[in-house]
Design a protein around this nucleic acid. Structure first.
Lengths: 162, 162
DNA sequence: CCTTGACCTCAAGTGCGCTTGAGATCCTAC
DNA sequence: GTAGGATCTCAAGCGCACTTGAGGTCAAGG
């Protein structure tokens, strides 16, 4: 079975680059950082096992989501680079990734919620509304979204007495 | 009404820094980039209108989500810096922000979905499962999540014939 | 008035995530 | 065997997002 390409066929750095959209220089850099691995030919050229494609793709997606490479490295955890990762390897890594992603997604959702909180008026936050309509103080203190990363806690607190 | 602090009270750079968690040097930098604005005292010191707190907070959240400052700047669009933004100003900006956020959230969700696709086995992607269980080719070609950012399209396509 | 701490500008430095270039080697095809 | 493109290493450079430092000014309390 499996005529043609072997499942353990090795890819050159150029092929990796073409197929992942990540520059060869970046791949070498990732290797320096220990994010990806390769084997070498007799002539010292890199050859990548196929499962590295997945790894590189995950890296580039994570990067687009703003995850620093150090975190990415950590997220891979014990997933081996020299051999095709085992079931449990991926399982563990998968959980780690999902945790990190969920964190980020929640941060976005929180912000989206902030922006939606006052969808009726289209402003960026309920408190801003209170500013724009100082007469309607109740609307501000009543309920709903309150803080933007618990940082602007009392931005307009001056005239906040209900 | 509004005893105590005036709604248009001005904040020093130190107060801004304390209340937003953004370093004073960063606030000056943001000003150079045109992301925030300030008025000056007679002695050339910055004074920030209160609505800048919101702006700065939005900047720092967006930054944590991996949005480049150039995009942030663009996302603010026409929201004025010198005067308290109007209803419509925020409305327009709000829409822009939500669009950008949604984009990012979707990217994350897509990746999360990928990671969940094969939750049964806990691996990082359906295709990886196919690799791990080469006998069960149908599971791979059947349905469900397929691509990781349309980049690894045919990672294991070699032995893929159903 | 004087001190002290917050603030100013401007230039240079830092860390991350790469890219570019030089100079050499590999490897595939003719 | 040899030409050509792909790859190698190593060092330097770059853009972004700041920080740090020098040298000086501002402003509020005693």
């Amino acid at each position: 079975m499996n005529p043609g390409l072997e499942p353990d066929e090795l890819l050159t750095i150029g092929e990796m680059s073409r197929r992942t959209g990540v520059a060869a220089s970046a791949l070498r850099y990732y290797e320096d950082l220990g994010l990806v691995g390769s084997v070498r030919t007799g002539g010292n050229q890199r050859r990548y096992p196929r499962h590295m494609l997945r790894r590189v793709s995950l890296i580039s997606v994570a990067k687009r989501l703003g995850m620093p490479l150090a975190d990415v490295r950590e997220a891979f955890g014990e997933v081996p680079m020299e051999s095709t990762p085992s079931h449990t390897d991926w399982q563990r890594a998968s959980r780690r990734w999902k945790k990190k992603l969920e964190e980020r997604r929640r941060a976005i959702e929180r912000l989206e919620h902030e922006l939606t909180g006052c969808i009726g008026c289209g402003c960026l936050s309920l408190k801003a509304c209170a500013l724009l309509n100082p007469d309607d103080a109740l609307a501000a203190t009543g309920a709903g979204p309150r803080r933007l990363e618990d940082v602007v806690e009392d931005e307009e607190s001056a005239g906040d007495e209900p």
